[in-house]
């Protein structure tokens, strides 16, 4: 029988909140970087690509630790944020940043592949018909990479739902503040008699991921048909 405590509901809500926010704030940046990687010839493109893909291959704990160094009180960014009275570590913002960084390469990769499959002639045709570059981006590149954007968002959202390593290091495991589903499951499994509760959350986690993929696939098919 699936039983959930109020704390579990909070974890589910937090997970959705973190995944949604992380995906949405990463989207414009991800689109811009994918565009740069797919269509432009800027020097140092390989390095940029490497940095963006690093979270794919590094252990999430390492990412979390690096973020902690960066956003900590004496960190490069953290010290500036402290002056503005903003705290990242052990807050919801921290959890969102951790999820964003870890899921970002999946988003960019997907959009970039979609953009690279667009025939350059469409862009050229658009320009010779009088469209400025940003007009071409909005009216040609954006709609033609729509399905890739959706696929990237689905992947990133699902990845954010499951984010654990970087989040626990940067944001901690504070119930009601930064405790998302994976962190709650971790807490249950490490406390005696928590197995049942952990299992319930596992079922929720599986169901959520499944729904995300299903919704993504449905929208994808609708877009393909139109």
């Amino acid at each position: 029988m699936l039983t959930l405590s109020p704390q579990d509901y909070q974890a589910i809500l937090l997970s959705l909140q973190v995944a949604t926010t992380a995906t949405l704030i990463s989207l414009p940046v991800g689109f811009a970087i994918a565009y740069v990687l797919a269509f432009t010839r800027v020097p140092g493109k390989a390095i940029l690509e490497g940095i963006i893909n690093l979270p794919l291959v590094l252990p999430p704990v390492v990412i979390g630790y690096l973020l902690l160094l960066l956003f900590g009180r004496n960190g490069w960014i953290g010290s500036h944020l402290k002056d503005l009275n903003i705290q990242v570590i052990f807050t919801l913002t921290g959890a969102i940043i951790a999820s964003s960084v870890v899921g970002f390469p999946l988003l960019v990769r997907s959009i970039r592949l979609g953009m690279e499959s667009i025939d350059r002639h469409y862009l050229q045709a658009s320009r010779t018909l009088g469209a400025r570059w940003w007009d071409t981006v909005l009216t040609i590149v954006l709609p033609l990479s729509g399905r890739a954007i959706l696929a990237g968002m689905t992947l990133m959202f699902a990845r954010s739902l499951g984010e654990f390593g970087a989040t626990i290091v940067l944001a901690g495991n504070i119930p009601g503040v930064t405790q998302t589903i994976p962190l709650a499951i971790y807490q249950y499994t490490s406390s005696p008699g928590g197995d049942r509760m952990a299992l319930s959350l596992c079922v929720v986690s599986i169901a959520l991921s499944f729904v995300v993929l299903l919704v993504g696939e449905t929208i994808n098919r609708t877009m393909a048909r139109s």
Binding site: Q124, T128, L129, G130, R132
Partner: peptide
């Protein structure tokens, strides 16, 4: 001139 300013159609 960028393509859109040339008024040359293709």
């Amino acid at each position: 001139l960028p393509p859109e300013a040339r008024r040359v159609g293709v």
